[in-house]
Design a binder for these strands. Sequence first.
DNA 1: CATAAATTGCGACAAAGTTGCAAAAATAAT
DNA 2: ATTATTTTTGCAACTTTGTCGCAATTTATG
Lengths: 142, 142
Amino acid sequence: MQPSAQLEQVLKQHGQSVTAARQAVLAALQGQEPLTMGELVIRCNDIDRATVYRSVALFERLSIVQRLQAGWKYKLELSDAFHEHHHHATCLHCGQVVPLSEDPKLEAYLHDLAVAYNFTLRKHQIELSGLCATCQPTVGSL
Amino acid sequence: MQPSAQLEQVLKQHGQSVTAARQAVLAALQGQEPLTMGELVIRCNDIDRATVYRSVALFERLSIVQRLQAGWKYKLELSDAFHEHHHHATCLHCGQVVPLSEDPKLEAYLHDLAVAYNFTLRKHQIELSGLCATCQPTVGSL
DNA sequence: CATAAATTGCGACAAAGTTGCAAAAATAAT
DNA sequence: ATTATTTTTGCAACTTTGTCGCAATTTATG
């Protein structure tokens, strides 16, 4: 299904209106790289900042979008129902975020971990950080 | 070793001064729960906000402190050299952060993953989120 | 204890995020 | 379709969070 059609479906399911602003915010998030809030606001440049914030808040409540810690700043990306589920490796030097492909063994493991702690798991994130192949020669010590 | 003595050691190793402000920031972070920046500033109430920020920035550079995504906000806690290494489960309802005990198998797995992606791994985080045992009965759907 | 170097607090500022409310757009009803 | 109702948007004001330069203070050096 097209992401835009899927958005429409999710919004209607929850009694929320399908609006141009929300479609634009989704479209801006469809690129490969996760975005900071600031970057997202810039890419939605016809839409008021407050509206972008409200859309993101709604999208988070509806699990359309997730927030991840990339180095110092947090970034936003479409969540598992819209993208393939995956994790991230962030380069501490250049800030690039590399998506890691999913591994069922790891997923199963985390599931069991949650059970052991009596937690109803809704979502999870793994964030690796270090130096990417490109930056390794450049940086002596961080 | 006492955390305060360890702080002194790390600071001197990197040619940084040992100051009252930095000791106070460390002390405030020594509780069990990770803190938001705002909470930390409040607990260091004799110390100027700017100084708290500068101390945290320094502590992050020296890997004394790490930042984790807990629900919507980020929180700060002492990093592995000061606490036992561990991961977190955050309750989406009450916001409580439960520390998860370390598992060598998981750690080894993540290490291999980084190698596969040609990444020099400096640190990593696993964040589970869901409902804690206490909140599960309270909340129908989130 | 004196000197040099680094850190702190202050105030002013920039950036990020929130809120109330009237206008506009989306949904529901006729 | 057109109108009525509900929701969302943009705007502007505002709060919170985070940053920066600089003089005063504290820390380290000899």
